[in-house]
């Protein structure tokens, strides 16, 4: 019993007090800031090294929906592309994930997430989500699980992952959507009652990621339903996911 108390005391409180203001360490590769004028090399060579084809030209840009934030282009571009440690990279519009040269983090953040007024009105302050892993490598799944651990404690906002789609207000997709999982994903979506939201988490769910060229995927689902929120990353950090949901629900 005394040992247990000692353990509890050592453990203390591990929760991050302010999820909204929390910042990540310098090494984190988050929002890319691009300064094309500083690039003097060969653009074709630069775009070719990207493992997911996320780099665009005219102007130089990075599609965060494809980007796996490996940072290889930062090295190759001699600093013209720089991954900052800023982590609020989610958006409600797929097109907005394309970050062009000159776009600052603050400017991106100001309009990245359009809060869902209607959903808030119906669902109140709580949000229950059914997560479906459809070919995910367990990276995104581990970070989504971490959202509910003692450090991030997403439950404090009334946001939880639930077991049944019947209890859920929406689904969270991870993975590139394999052919073998496409029917189950579709069934889970249909089982959630309206109104419902769809959140795509990670490069794979948004664009196929490193598996985009696999012939074993079936991504018709993402064309058929409306994805309400895109959360980039490989995998997205828990703070990225939680803040995206809070912004979407206008909870800050």
């Amino acid at each position: 019993m005394l040992e247990l108390l000692r353990l509890r005391k050592r453990h203390g409180s591990q929760a991050i007090p302010d999820i909204v203001k929390a910042e990540l360490m310098e090494t984190h590769r988050g929002f890319p800031e691009i300064n094309e004028s500083r690039f003097s090399g060969n653009l074709d060579e630069l775009t070719a090294i990207c493992p997911t084809g996320a780099i665009g030209t005219r102007p130089l840009s990075i599609d965060m929906g494809k980007c796996i934030f490996c940072g290889e282009c930062e090295i190759q571009s001699a600093g013209a592309i720089r991954f900052t440690n800023r982590h609020k990279t989610a958006s409600t519009r797929r097109d907005d994930l394309v970050v062009p040269s000159g776009l600052a983090y603050e400017e991106f953040g100001a309009k990245a997430i359009e809060a869902a007024g209607g959903i808030r009105k119906i669902l109140g302050r709580s949000l229950k989500l059914r997560q479906v892993s459809a070919g995910g490598c367990n990276g995104c799944e581990m970070e989504l699980n971490a959202c509910s651990n003692v450090n991030f404690d997403m439950g404090r906002f009334g946001i939880d992952f639930v077991a049944s789609p019947r209890h859920a207000d929406g689904i969270v997709i991870t993975g590139p959507i394999t052919g073998n999982m496409a029917p189950a994903l579709s069934d889970a979506y249909k089982s959630v009652s309206d109104p419902k939201i769809v959140v795509a988490v990670g490069a794979c769910a948004i664009s196929g990621g490193v598996f985009a060229e696999s012939k074993h995927l079936n991504r018709t689902f993402v064309g058929e339903v409306q994805v309400d929120l895109f959360v980039p990353g490989c995998p997205p950090h828990p703070l990225t996911f939680i803040n995206a949901i809070l912004d979407f629900l206008k909870r800050r």
Binding site: I49, I68, N180
Partner: peptide
């Protein structure tokens, strides 16, 4: 099992050859 099958082994030999892609895969 098999629901997660996404053709990893085929992607290892996809063209064009890229060491960076292989590392990330």
């Amino acid at each position: 099992l098999g629901f997660q099958h996404r053709g990893v082994q085929e992607l290892f030999i996809r063209e064009p050859f890229s060491t960076i892609y292989l590392e990330k895969l």
